[in-house]
């Protein structure tokens, strides 16, 4: 789905002493079928921004266009159901949204809200559960609260995938997971996205490594605006500016930058996988001064 924000602004608790401007003049465009990351320090407005993309928040200023739907100040919540089906959202700690008696029913909640019959919804729910790696059918009749933490998170994500959205908004979906769990989770979303041309996701993350690996385009936010955007190569070449905004670069990039300084030779620092980084170091050691 194509997303475009124009001079988007949002103020929490408008007209109270607690008024807080969280977004100010945001302009951005996300193409259909793309993998996008949004990075920024805590409180920079990432969550506020992405919650506009499925109409959970209505702009205070400017507009946001999602597909054919244009949302402006004053747009009514009721008109947004269609959009919410097309744009799924995985929050931080998604397992907190589980509520139904059985795993199966909980997963079917979304599709049923979007107008499917119970049978259809359950069918889609089962597909989604298998997709997130829960193949054991005896689980489906259990209460979601009997499952382990990791399984609960998978069920919650299946609950979002079951509505068959075209676009996923992932707001720090790997919070609280160990490194291995994080990779598994990200591979899951990455695999989901590759299944169809039109599918896209927006990943909000604190991990620059994830942003580099799982996104083709990165937006950097600072104090409610987009301050830098581009491919990972472009964004992570601005190490000093990123530092000013309280952000780092991927560890591999950091290593190469330091090596490059020590050896006093320019090297290609935009290598984000361990293999590429190793190759780059080997080249440096061999004294290969191929253009970079």
């Amino acid at each position: 789905m194509h997303i475009k924000a124009q001079d988007l602004g949002y103020t929490y608790m408008k007209n109270t002493p607690f008024e807080k401007k969280a977004l100010d003049g945001v302009n951005l465009e996300i193409k259909e079928g793309s993998r996008v990351a949004i990075v920024g320090h805590t409180g920079s407005g990432k969550s506020t921004l992405v919650q506009h993309m499925n109409g959970l928040l209505i702009p205070s200023e400017g507009s946001l266009t999602a597909g054919e739907m244009e949302i402006r100040p004053g747009t009514k919540q009721k008109t947004l159901s269609k959009l919410r089906q097309r744009v799924g959202m995985v929050f931080q700690f998604p397992e907190h949204q589980l509520f139904d008696e059985t795993v199966e029913k909980d997963v079917a909640f979304g599709p049923m809200n979007f107008g499917l019959t119970r049978e259809e919804a359950c069918g889609r729910g089962r597909d989604a559960l298998r997709k997130v790696g829960l193949h054991d059918e005896s689980l489906y009749k259990k209460s979601p609260f009997e499952l382990s933490g990791g399984q609960m998170r998978r069920v919650a994500i299946a609950g979002v995938l079951a509505s068959e959205p075209e676009m996923l908004i992932l707001d720090e979906p790997t919070a609280g997971l160990d490194p291995e769990g994080r990779v598994k989770m990200m591979e899951l979303f990455s695999g989901w996205q590759k299944e169809s041309e039109a599918r896209s996701y927006v990943l909000v993350t604190h991990h620059m490594e994830d942003a580099a690996t799982y996104a083709d385009y990165i937006f950097v936010m600072h104090q409610g605006t987009v301050v830098l955007e581009g491919s990972p190569e472009v964004v992570f070449s601005h190490e000093e500016r990123l530092q000013q905004w309280g952000l780092g670069v991927p560890k591999t990039t950091k290593l190469l930058i330091e090596l490059s300084k020590k050896a006093n030779t320019p090297i290609n620092v935009a290598s984000f996988s361990v293999e590429d980084t190793a190759k780059e170091i080997v080249r440096l050691l061999k004294g290969d001064k191929r253009d970079v």
Partner: peptide, 9 residues
């Protein structure tokens, strides 16, 4: 918000 995102009203 999480339930609204799943189509609840």
């Amino acid at each position: 918000k999480a339930q609204l995102a799943r189509g609840a009203s």
